[in-house]
Design a binder for these strands. Structure first.
Length: 221
DNA sequence: TACCAGGAGAAAA
DNA sequence: TTTTCTCATGGT
């Protein structure tokens, strides 16, 4: 039997505390409803959040960010509204797939009542909803304890030497969830820290000295 | 001008 | 089973 890789809990906690001192961490996922989280999660696939904001603004201006309005909106019109987020045709299809799923299965309320694994598998069965998008919806939309692994999280964990970098999505999720108390709010806080830190430092490989990410870097002491 | 961003799925190897 | 390609706008 192969042993699951683990994250050094002490180093993870140390990093988290340092980041809390370094940055003002916000709640981070700005949305007025579960539906808005879910739509935003699809729109942000491989896309900068600034462009997602433009698309969300268009949807709100058109008063289209409600379940009934969105599901009755023709796909071409939806694509037009979300145009600034890029991949607008494919994302319009994905949003429609999600809406049809919700309509057929009883909506987010029904999803919330399922056990976590069943809810996650249900979301993953929707075309266009992969692990990260499903986990965004579960954690930020439904407040369920699932750690979201995005490219920010992976990049930062790799840079501070807490992971190898070749772990699968599910491996990383399991590693983080095992290292932390199983609470949605804690997962959100840690995730926010990864996102904030990733936004502050350069993406160069190897990292330039000016944005050394090591825990013992004088810049963070 | 070229490259990249808070992915996912289909097609090709 | 693993790798590569496609979807696309907007910022740097």
């Amino acid at each position: 039997m192969t042993r699951q890789p683990q994250i050094d809990k002490a180093e993870l906690s140390k990093f988290y505390k340092q980041m809390l001192q370094a940055y003002k961490i916000n709640h981070w996922w700005p949305a007025d409803s579960v539906l808005e989280v879910a739509v935003g999660a699809i729109l942000t696939q491989n896309t900068m959040w600034k462009n997602v904001e433009k698309a969300i603004k268009n949807l709100k201006s058109a008063r289209a960010l409600t379940f009934q309005r969105l599901i009755s909106l023709p796909e071409t019109q939806l694509a037009e509204l979300i145009h600034p987020s890029g991949y607008y045709n494919i994302k319009a299809k994905r949003i429609k797939s999600l809406l049809i799923f919700l309509e057929n299965t009883g909506g987010f309320q029904k999803l919330r009542k399922m056990d976590l694994q069943t809810a996650r598998n249900s979301l993953l069965s929707i075309n266009g909803i992969g692990p990260e998008t499903a986990d965004d919806i579960l954690l930020y939309g439904l407040n369920l304890p699932v750690f979201v692994i995005d490219s920010y999280t992976r990049r930062i964990l790799e840079r501070i030497d807490l992971i190898e970098g070749n772990e699968s999505y599910e491996q990383l999720r399991s590693m983080l969830e095992s290292a932390l108390p199983k609470e949605a709010n804690i997962y959100k806080k840690y995730h926010s820290v990864f996102v904030e830190h990733a936004k502050q430092v350069c993406k160069k490989k190897p990292i330039c000295e000016a944005c050394c990410l090591k825990l013992d870097c004088p810049g963070f002491s």
